[in-house]
Design a protein around this nucleic acid. Structure first.
Lengths: 372, 372
DNA sequence: ACCACGCATGAGCAATTGCTCAACGGCCGG
DNA sequence: CCGGCCGTTGAGCAATTGCTCATGCGTGGT
């Protein structure tokens, strides 16, 4: 894979100009003279030489090419960064199957974490199969005094290793750091229980610590029947399906968003025990991992919500997300209710216990991919 | 024609290092982030990022390519610059025939002069067909108050337009500047006449002015039967032939040198009325033009003498000179008398009048291509 | 012919970059 | 096991670079 700087109108230059530009560029870029020196040589002022050199680059007389290894997708990564205002995007080259894709993504994410973490770092951790896989690959060369904090409650059901607490433990084990568990379920019966729980010192202190994290590692969840929320037993298949009918496309730490990145105030949200989005936003580097084959919509929505700073994703999803993002999206800043999947709240009896009325979807913070 | 920065050992890097280098380079060179930003992003110190970027360039991960027009020979020019320590080298692409070559060289030289000259500049001027052709192409966009000074005497014979005085006049006309003629023949009868002539205010003042020039435009002369010295009647065919047998390969302003660039103290030198080489060396930019097909040896010798700062030459000569220079040359700094064409002084009755004994070739300034 | 607009120009300054240097740490030999 | 050596690191500084601004020149429109 390779990448070039933008090539411009190479022909709109007269011969003489072209010659000057090329010669100037040769002296500056290849022979590594200073701008002052080349200017002197060509009988120009330094500023003029600088302007000409800039023009040479714009015009494509100077082409800078990165001889990247074939397994890097620097162009996709740049496109993701630019499209969604990300700080960093890492694309894992497509593998033979979904499992291999996940492993590849996890590996790249692990490498990224290893580079970022320092002694004393605090990492807020979410759940998910990919996040869990990250922990398996996370093996820094030397021990790191890093604290991993659960940023979401656990689940009673099966599929234990994808639990935030478990992921934390595995990550801490990988580097000789500390794991701070959140002793609470991801979803409780109702808002009342939730606020009681949040009042507990043990819960509150963990969430506070997560809120002060330097970095967050979260998985992007989907709304399909096989998503982590369902697999882990946090939500029932029906609940997730219903969320989908409400326009939800995916979540981060249980915070569901629609395709335009707007948070979805579903009744479930009242029952969620996790780091609030506003707190998550305050974390300097929110690293999201995503790799399942049916994730493009989830990733797109989450990226548009602007919570994510760093995305680690497989090549297939990356391409799909960029393609989807290129299509003009339904009304966002305009305030119009989007068409298509965004149906108004319908009759759904929330869940065995949650009785809170279906909330209107008005009055939320503006989405937009950029935030700081 | 194109040119790349040195490609290094691209394979001696591990995958991870390679990835880091490529990604760093992408962010810095393509996305135009500052080193500080990319360092921050990758969790490195600025210095480390800088070192890695440098390594990326050395290793060839970053390739800078100049998209030069096909009629530029930047690679040859760089090679000439480096081989002979030139400040600048301009190679005119090969044309259909020798005349066209000369025109091309003259045109490039004229463009170079136009770029270099400023109001108030003083230019010392030599003779020759190419120099004369330069004058024909010399047409700056706006008038320039430049003084062109003859740096060598004239010739009584035919081929008037190649005379320094004529070249000066033509150049001055080209830009609306002033021409300062040297009212003396290039070669006089004997050393006595020469010193008398040099004592004349008119001659001395012109040569003084030439000595103080900001730039010099000189032709590189050969030692063949058709060289300018012969054509213009300055020297007889026999005299030039004899100079050749003495090891002379070419001249600048009548100062002949051998293939190693050492000045040749021939009897003719005693009779020459021209700016002395030591003075010529003091001129900041000595621009030499050369274009005849039989010039490689002359150009090589002159370049090795180190008088020239800027060379404008045709492609054929450029290649021939570089090829010849690549071959190990006969003893130079070693002091041994070079083999081959360098025969010891032989019986030659200098000329109708010059009676000075053939001089030994000992005790000259060190040659070497570099000087300042 | 005059004026207004706009682009090019070079001065000066702030940011970025490259380099030097002392300190650190790991590695090898004693 | 200890000491010296080499490679690596980041601090600090000097050089280089990029940018902003006031000025001037040319161009085109009254």
């Amino acid at each position: 894979m390779s990448n070039c700087s933008t090539a411009g109108p190479l022909d709109s230059l007269r011969q003489d100009d072209y010659e000057l530009l090329a010669r100037l560029a040769q002296r500056y870029y290849i022979d590594e003279q200073t701008q002052d020196q080349v200017a002197r040589e060509f009988g120009l002022s330094r500023q003029k030489a600088q302007r000409l050199l800039k023009r040479a680059r714009q015009a494509g007389v100077v082409a800078i090419h990165i001889e990247a290894p074939s397994w890097l997708r620097l162009d996709l990564e740049s496109e993701l960064r630019e499209t969604f205002g990300l700080e960093e995007a890492v694309v894992a080259v497509a593998q033979a199957n979904a499992d291999a894709d996940r492993e590849a993504v996890a590996q790249r994410a692990a490498r990224y974490l290893e580079r970022q973490l320092r002694d004393g770092s605090v990492v807020a951790v979410g759940h998910g199969r990919t996040a869990s896989a990250v922990a398996r690959f996370f093996r820094p060369v030397d021990r790191l005094a890093v604290t991993f904090v659960s940023a979401m409650g656990g689940s009673p059901g099966a599929d234990a290793p994808t639990n935030p607490n478990e992921v934390c433990r595995a990550l801490a084990q990988g580097c000789g750091g500390r794991a701070e568990s959140l002793y609470a379920p991801a979803y409780v019966e109702d808002a009342g229980v939730r606020s009681q729980l949040l009042a507990q010192a043990a819960v509150r202190s963990t969430l506070d610590m997560a809120a002060g994290a330097d970095l967050a590692l979260v998985g992007i969840g989907g709304v399909d029947d096989d998503c982590t929320m369902v697999r882990s037993g946090c939500l029932s298949r029906e609940e997730v399906t219903w969320l989908g009918t409400q326009g939800a496309v995916g979540d981060v730490l249980g915070h569901y968003v629609d395709l335009d990145g707007r948070p979805l105030a579903s009744p479930h949200h009242q029952r969620l025990v996790a780091l609030p989005v506003e707190h998550l936003r305050r974390v300097k580097k929110v690293v999201a991992v995503a790799s399942e084959p049916e994730k493009p919509a989830a990733v797109l929505g989450i990226l548009r919500s602007g919570v994510v700073d760093v995305l680690v994703v497989d090549e297939t999803n990356a391409r799909a997300v960029l393609q989807a993002a290129a299509r003009p999206r339904a009304g966002t800043a305009t305030g119009r209710a989007p068409a298509g999947p965004m149906v108004p709240a319908t009759r759904y009896q929330p869940s065995p216990a949650a009785k809170a009325a279906t909330l209107s979807r008005a009055g939320r913070d503006a989405p937009g991919p950029h935030r700081r």
